[in-house]
Simulated assay, not measured.
Amino acid sequence: MKVEPIAFTPTEDPGSGMLRYRHADSGCTFLVGPPHADLALWRQCMDGALEVYRHYGSEDALEYDAVIDGRSTILFGIALDAEGRAVAGVRAEGPHQHVDTVHAVASWAGLPGDAAFRRMVADQIPDGVIECKAGWTVRDTPHRRELADWVARAIVHCASLLGVRYAVGVAPDHALKCYRSSGANVAWWIPATSYPDDRYRTVPIWWDMQTYRTVATESQTRLIDLEMAELTADGTRLPIVWARDEGSA
């Protein structure tokens, strides 16, 4: 697979080069696009993630300095509240051409189940795989639950917009219910590990765009459909495309 950028010139209007919709109940605006569509919003997304991860003492897992230039991120989602404050976000890497570039798989090297995890993702790559990371929500908002559910849906949106079949990642036990609500499968045959440290029991997860509806809750599925319709209603296309490289493995 390969990603080919389309010529794009962002304007001064925040998020003008991104797909968006507004959530009436929370008053939040949700946007999805590549980092270069709005570098200021991209930095707000990552700075928000850094603040949350730092609060829990797990900022090393974010790898902020390595990813802040945006080059490794193909899409990110960000939620802005009524005052324009970034209150949630997530980012996606890929589509991956080889299993060695999938960070989640690399993080499992030398651990029980590493061969099984590697084989699973390698088998998925011909149909398109992205890796979703750095999901976060602010802690001081009355809509934290709704925002967490949106982060889970945003992963499905990223995969759908990119036309890949799979999204992969890792998640701690306490987040599994949220991610499963949007269709995530848990790789139950791969032993959990302590990542990023001993406070967490973390397992590999993945979404299959052909079957996620059989796992997702009815409410999340309904919102995924409504939001995707709004994101694509005006025919705007994101300034990226990807094409399958038949030689990839």
Rank of each mutant, 00 (worst) to 15 (best):
V3T: 13
P5R: 15
F8Q: 11
T11F: 08
T11A: 11
E12V: 11
D13I: 14
G15C: 02
R20P: 00
R20T: 06
R22S: 10
H23F: 00
H23C: 01
A24T: 06
G27F: 02
C28M: 04
C28E: 04
T29I: 09
F30M: 10
L31G: 01
V32K: 01
G33H: 08
A37Q: 03
L39T: 15
L39H: 12
A40M: 09
A40Y: 08
W42Y: 15
R43H: 15
C45N: 15
C45L: 13
M46Y: 14
M46I: 11
D47K: 14
L50H: 15
E51R: 15
D60V: 07
A61V: 03
D65S: 13
D65T: 09
A66F: 13
A66L: 14
A66Q: 15
G70V: 11
T73L: 03
G77Q: 02
L80E: 03
D81K: 08
A82M: 03
A82S: 11
A86K: 09
V87P: 07
A88H: 08
A92R: 04
A92V: 07
Q97M: 05
Q97L: 10
Q97I: 02
Q97D: 12
H98A: 12
T101W: 12
H103N: 12
V105M: 03
A106G: 07
A106R: 14
W108D: 00
L111F: 02
P112K: 06
D114Y: 05
D114M: 00
A116N: 00
A116T: 03
F117T: 00
R118I: 00
A122M: 07
A122F: 01
A122R: 15
D123E: 14
D123K: 09
I125P: 08
I125W: 10
D127S: 13
D127I: 01
V129K: 13
C132Y: 12
K133F: 06
R139N: 06
R139Y: 05
H143Y: 13
H143N: 10
R144P: 01
R144G: 04
R145T: 14
D149R: 13
D149N: 12
A152M: 04
R153V: 01
C158V: 07
V164M: 09
R165W: 11
Y166P: 04
A167T: 10
G169D: 09
V170W: 09
D173H: 13
A175I: 06
L176A: 07
K177A: 15
K177Y: 06
Y179F: 15
Y179K: 02
S182Y: 00
S182A: 15
A184L: 10
W189M: 03
W189N: 09
P191C: 02
S194K: 11
Y195E: 02
D197E: 05
R201D: 07
R201H: 12
P204H: 10
W206T: 05
W207E: 01
M209I: 00
Q210Y: 00
Q210C: 00
Y212Q: 02
T214I: 06
T214W: 11
A216E: 03
E218P: 02
D225K: 13
D225S: 12
M228D: 05
A229T: 11
A229V: 04
E230S: 12
E230D: 11
T232M: 09
A233D: 07
D234F: 07
G235V: 07
G235Q: 08
T236A: 15
T236G: 06
L238E: 08
I240E: 02
W242Q: 15
W242H: 11
G247I: 02
S248F: 04
